[in-house]
Simulated scan of single mutants.
Amino acid sequence: MDLELQSKKTALVIIDLQKGIVQFPGAPNATTEVVANAAKLSQAFRKQGGFVVLVTVGSRDGGDLLHPIVDQPMTTSVQRSADFADLVPELHVQPTDHLVIKHQWGAFFGTDLDLQLRRRGIDTLVLCGIATNIGVETTAREAYQHNYQQIFVSDAMTGLTAAEHEHTLQYIFPRIGRIRTTEQVLTALGL
């Protein structure tokens, strides 16, 4: 196999698997499948002593979020529940996990993610989460600009629509990293 992962130099970065986001239907992968595969990956990384990063999008009062004038708003006025930003329980958050709260699409801007990865000597990221073409893709573009090697787990991410998901997998990710399945990543970890 062309994928070899060193757990000490590779981090798993899971984007927005939080209660307020997994409630939306994913396409083409169901959010339940995405959560199950991300949970397998996080367990495997922890077992190998790897660094697990759990990213959520949140806001104190809405004032720290971006409010651009757009032609197509992301959502209608969704009422955010008190547990909107809580990670899904299937991820079994551990004290060794690094938690990142972002206030926009990407996990690097305005957070300590790059600092924490570099301090640990990490040079490769395994990315998954929701939505493929929004949070995952923006984080991937930022990681590319920070010179990280990247692996995108196609069956551990989903888009708002199948077309958006497929566009990112077909045209963006192959230019900035490698696309693999959950099983291929687990095999590369020696599991």
Rank of each mutant, 00 (worst) to 15 (best):
Q79K: 13
A82W: 05
A82V: 13
A82K: 09
D83G: 05
L87I: 03
V88S: 04
E90M: 07
L91I: 00
H92N: 14
V93I: 07
V93N: 04
T96K: 11
H98D: 06
V100R: 02
I101A: 11
Q104V: 09
Q104A: 14
Q104G: 10
G106P: 08
A107P: 10
F108E: 01
F108C: 06
F109K: 11
F109V: 15
D112L: 10
Q116T: 06
L117I: 11
R118H: 07
R119W: 02
G121S: 07
I122F: 03
D123W: 00
D123N: 14
D123L: 04
L125T: 06
C128Q: 02
G129V: 02
I130Y: 04
I130A: 06
I130M: 12
A131F: 15
T132R: 01
I134H: 10
V136D: 01
E137Q: 15
E137S: 05
T139I: 08
T139H: 08
A140W: 07
A140S: 13
R141W: 03
R141V: 09
E142D: 14
Q145W: 10
Q145G: 11
H146L: 10
H146P: 05
H146I: 10
N147P: 00
N147C: 13
Y148S: 04
Q149F: 05
Q149A: 15
I151M: 09
F152M: 15
S154D: 12
D155C: 05
M157Y: 04
T158W: 01
T158D: 06
G159F: 01
T161R: 01
A162W: 01
E164M: 12
E164D: 12
